[in-house]
């Protein structure tokens, strides 16, 4: 067989491999996220379906399964600017992604103009060598999908997340904020809202079945809004706010209970604002 034929055969193999890989990833990502908050999320979803057969709210997670193809879309995950790229804000909004064309990112459907803030929050889980992590709280967090505050690192299904917000969002399940059939849920789609009728909360593009997780993540969402406001003054302060650290240039500490936060800082209000119910 000629060299060209061999290359052609190789390219065909490449295409086949890519298709297999993408399909495999999609199925894994989809099923993982459905079960993120509760190992038996599918059963829980079915129960809601039975209670409200007219609602399509119960199919929210699965209705966006195809969207998880984009979990593996490099351009959608990594901030960069390409004014000639097609606008992908719709996808980015659904997947906590970045639109290269508009040079903006989205987390919990909130638009983030600051690349450094988006990257600091980094909504997509990281693959680390978990065996290298020796912190006992982290080890416990790995086992329980928990969060280690001293290290500023949490885990969901073995992937690492570096903020309370993104860890909380990863613990929920994907949802399109405009699709809930339940009116109470739909009304609350612009802000974190817990619906007692559905026993379900929503923050942007993410649904929660666990109320505590919802409340905690909603608080972090409020901090995100404050941080976005802060980017006008100092982007690194905004970054520090979201991870409760110290700004490396202003040296203002946003660590918990820090007395050093200026009184007019949006972080003050963020800490005081409770999530709505």
């Amino acid at each position: 067989m000629s060299r060209n034929s061999a290359i052609a055969l190789g390219l065909i193999s490449l295409v086949c491999l890519s298709i297999i890989a993408v399909n495999g990833c999609y199925k894994t990502a989809h099923s993982d996220r459905d079960t993120a908050e509760h190992p038996h999320a599918h059963a829980h979803t079915a129960a809601i379906d039975h209670t409200h057969p007219s609602d399509d709210a119960t199919s929210l997670a699965s209705s966006h399964g195809a969207d998880h193809d984009h979990d593996h879309d490099h351009a959608l995950m990594h901030p960069s600017h390409d004014p000639f790229a097609p606008c992908r804000c719709d996808l980015a909004r659904l997947h906590n992604g970045w639109c290269q064309s508009c040079n903006v990112g989205y987390i919990a459907t909130v638009q983030i103009d600051s690349e450094i803030l988006y990257s600091t929050l980094d909504p997509h889980g990281h693959d680390l060598d978990l065996d290298l992590i020796v912190c006992e709280t982290c080890r416990h967090a790995i086992d329980k999908d928990g969060y280690c505050d001293p290290c500023g690192m949490g885990f969901v299904r073995g992937k690492a997340f570096f903020s309370r917000l993104t860890h909380g969002l990863a613990s929920g399940s994907a949802v399109d904020p405009v699709s809930p059939a339940c009116k109470a849920c739909r009304i609350g789609s612009d802000e974190p809202r817990w619906c007692d009728r559905c026993a379900r909360g929503a923050i942007g593009n993410t649904a929660f079945n666990n109320k505590e997780t919802f409340k905690r993540t909603a608080q972090e969402y409020t901090t995100l809004l404050a941080a976005i406001e802060k980017t006008e003054d100092c982007e690194l302060c905004a970054c520090a706010m979201t991870v409760y650290r110290t700004c490396p240039t202003c040296f203002v500490s946003y660590e918990p209970d820090s007395p050093g936060i200026p009184e007019n800082d949006p972080m003050h209000e963020a800490r005081l604002a409770p999530p709505s119910e």
Binding site: G10, S13, L14, L17, C25, H74, G125, H126, F162
Partner: peptide
Amino acid sequence: AIIAAAGAVIAASTAQAG
């Protein structure tokens, strides 16, 4: 070689940067 390269490309594209 081509398949291995394809695998590397896919792996690289799915890595989370930070």
